[in-house]
Structures are given as C-alpha cells and as structure tokens.
Design a protein around this nucleic acid. Structure first.
Lengths: 125, 125
DNA sequence: TCAGGTACTTACCTCCTGGTAAGTACGGTG
DNA sequence: CACCGTACTTACCAGGAGGTAAGTACCTGA
C-alpha cells in the first residue's frame, strides 16, 4: 500500500528498531503519546504541526501493526478514537531517550534553529 | 548533490539525531568503525555486504561533515585512507546502544530473520 | 603490456516517501 | 437544509534516496 515492507531480515538491532521508527513523524507520535498518555486523532494532528492526515493515519496504522500503539474505537455519534502507547511503545520511547539527549547536545553544539512548537520559524535562514 | 540538506531547524533532539543517522548504512558504518577502531575504505565496503561504493562514500562524506568520523589520507603509492570515529561519533554510537538492544529484543519477539554477516540469506521467505 | 587493486567520481534511472486535495459517512447545530 | 466536525480513504504527483554501471588516476605484479 504505502510504507509497508521489511519486518526483517535485519542486519542488527538498530536496523530492526529503525524499521519501526523511520518515518517523518513516528518518533514525534511516540513522544506525543508518551507525554499525554492518550490522545484522540484530532489532538495528535494538532500536536504535530505540519503533519498531513494521510501520513498521520498511515504512521498510526503501521505503529499499531508493529505493536507500538493501542487503538481504541468508541462507536459514538461523532466518531471517537483514542490512541495510546503499548508496553513496547513505551519501552521504545525509553530506548530513544539517550538518542534524544545526544541530538539535543548536537543542537547546542552546532547552534541549529529549533523550530517552535507552533508554526513560525525563528531564523530566516 | 545527493543527501545533503537539513541540519536544522529541528523539532526535537530525536529529530536532530535522526538527521545524522538516517541513511541506509550510517548506523552500520558507526557500528563497524566502533568495533574495528579504524578501517580502510575497502575494508568497510567488505564489512557492509550490499553497499554500493557511491552510497558508502556519500555516507562517509556526510558523517565526516557532521563530525562523526575522522578521515585520514595517506599519500602513498596505492592510495590509502583510514576512517575512524570521532568523539561525537563514539558518543552517538553509545546513545544508539539502547535502541539496538530494543531492536534485538524485537527481533526475538517477532522471530524475524536475521541476515548473516556474509552474503547468504537464512530463510527463502 | 595489460590486468588488477587502491579510492574514488559521474551519469542515469527507479522506486519509495511524503505532500496535496478531494471524497466518504454520520449526526448535531444554526 | 446546508454546513461543521469527527475519523478516515483515495487518487494523483513531485522529490529525493539509493541502485547500477562506467570512468579516472596511479602504481604493482605477471
């Protein structure tokens, strides 16, 4: 369909983990769900400025397939779906933490712009 | 040129780290250099089965630019170039370790094939 | 003299990732 | 009764990551 593939054979653990986190928004989704515990589709969309509905759904589906997120559907009048991290999703997020710190250090080192949580960019170049 | 871009603005640390490791062979190069300390171009090529010369050089150049690997050229009769990890490369590799463990756990969980270090594949599919 | 090994460079091409935009089904609200 | 908000689905398209293959310059060994 879209991003579906792989799931091994893998060269090493990093390879296997990357197969599951690679995707423009996956790590952000993980982060968002980790921080808020449980989020609805529209909340996630608002929390990830710039994500398209297509990519968000696609990533969520893949992460659900990969056992990282849990999807709870409420058959209500305005449809309601809640996403949350599974145990594996949470542990992946924890495994990602040192990498995040390394990245934060790197941002400090090279003095790169950090795009604010909302739209506007800090520096013009 | 080829892969050059980004280097911020970044959404978070993970984003910044990913910008530097994303690429089919980057993490493997990191791993290879970490394990052997210092490697020549042809040694790396042989150590990463399936990599094309173009991608290997491209990734090495980018990682050098990003301050992850050190490139030492020996102006000798048959040209000789040695690659090794810088301090930042080593720390990135360390930050990648928990992710690698998570991936290894995942491989065990889902029972995915693990492609052997040399050419042949274990299971036909 | 010519193949072979070193470390690349260059050109070309394909497929995958992600973006845009529209459509769907449902009921509540003005 | 038309429109909004929910959570999607679908079709189409552009750009870039990565693959293949060939070329370069240099010296060594058969």
């Amino acid at each position: 369909m879209a991003t579906r593939a792989r799931r091994g054979p893998y060269i090493c653990g990093i390879d296997a983990a990357m197969d599951v986190v690679s995707g423009k928004w996956k790590s952000l989704i993980l982060w968002e769900l980790h921080h808020h515990g449980t989020r609805r589709f529209a909340e996630l969309r608002r929390g990830l400025p710039g994500v398209s509905e297509k990519m968000l759904i696609q990533h969520l589906r893949e992460m659900e397939e990969d056992g990282l997120v849990h999807r709870e559907v409420y058959r209500e009048v305005p449809p309601k779906v809640e996403y949350s991290l599974t145990e594996h999703g949470a542990s992946l997020n924890a495994a990602l933490a040192p990498l995040g710190e390394w990245g934060a250090d790197r941002i400090r080192r090279i003095g790169a712009d950090r795009v604010p949580v909302n739209g506007a960019v800090t520096a013009p170049r």
